[in-house]
Design a protein around this nucleic acid. Structure first.
Lengths: 167, 167
DNA sequence: ACAAACTTTCAATTATTTTTGAAAGTTTAA
DNA sequence: TTAAACTTTCAAAAATAATTGAAAGTTTGT
């Protein structure tokens, strides 16, 4: 396989993976492209490489920056903007999990709490509802906290050192 | 909040959460409905509760069974089929992570391996590509294995006991 | 073998999401 | 202040995904 083919394959694969996890395909593709670029890329070049419109590129770059995993860069003497992706994978994972937690898990937890604390009548049906949603609340909370702990640990300097020594 | 309202809110929330994670809304809603039902539910009832067509119900129930998180049940004297959801949350998480690994992560890993092992020329661009995709391969592999270990541990009988004692 | 009671399939329709492109907005340099 | 070089916005169009419903398929009892 030659470089161009491999690059294309990677961008396509990353895009498909994104869709399956609820991330718009183009957004994932732009991210893929930036991840494997050794230097900052202009919007022009992104449009060209992925064959997408200016509007599409602009909106998805904005979304990636909102996620905190793509940065704007300015080059001396150039008027246009360039973009780079977060390339440290531990940092990338930490940012993604923090955002998904904030945007999706936390609001879901709030609702779970609400519905699990209704005053159940003594029907088996309502009892089971309260029991199951309470368990779900506890479970999701535990999982969310665990992710937090894991990313925290990975970002911790001493942790990184220890991990390196264990490799 | 009364039971009916809470139930509805839960089903809606679970459905929305599903969409955000790449799972069809109806599929997630059916799953939600079954999770909080203390007894097996017929297709008829699912259609009625969620206001969906027979075809839709049938297809999504099939998908849920393919994921291994919903089961068919037969009731003596009844010709029609009833459905129940896996209610043990550790088991549920294990099944979901196993399926996503099998369907999405493993194929992606295969491609990552392919593209990261091309013979790079000595251009900085190609070197960076190989370097970054190799790191990504290692990272995804590590994360995938970690999930495996976690679910394995949770399913392990001794592990469960220890966890219970730690609570 | 027949028919009643179900479930599954899939082409057509509908709903949702994504993308486009041109107008409006912004920044910089002269 | 003007205009060139950019970026953003958003209504409309296109693409994609989900849903319907009726016909075909299956199972069970008589």
């Amino acid at each position: 396989m030659e470089f161009k083919e491999a690059k294309n394959k990677f961008v396509q694969t990353w895009g498909a993976l994104g869709s399956q996890w609820g991330i718009n395909k183009t957004m994932a593709q732009i991210h893929a492209l930036l991840m494997i670029s050794n230097e900052a890329v202009s919007m022009e070049d992104i449009m060209e490489e992925l064959q997408i419109s200016r509007g599409n590129a602009s909106m998805n770059l904005r979304a990636l920056m909102d996620w905190g995993i793509v940065y704007k860069e300015f080059k001396a003497g150039e008027r246009k903007e360039f973009f780079t992706a977060e390339k440290d994978l531990d940092e990338l994972a930490a940012k993604i999990s923090r955002e998904r937690s904030k945007r999706e898990i936390k609001p879901a937890l709030k609702i779970l709490k609400e519905v699990s604390t209704i005053e159940a009548s003594d029907s088996a049906e309502e009892k089971h509802f309260v029991d199951q949603t309470t368990k779900l609340y506890d479970f999701v909370l535990k999982a969310d906290n665990m992710l937090d702990k894991m990313t925290e640990f990975n970002e911790n300097w001493l942790g990184k050192l220890v991990i390196k020594m264990m490799k």
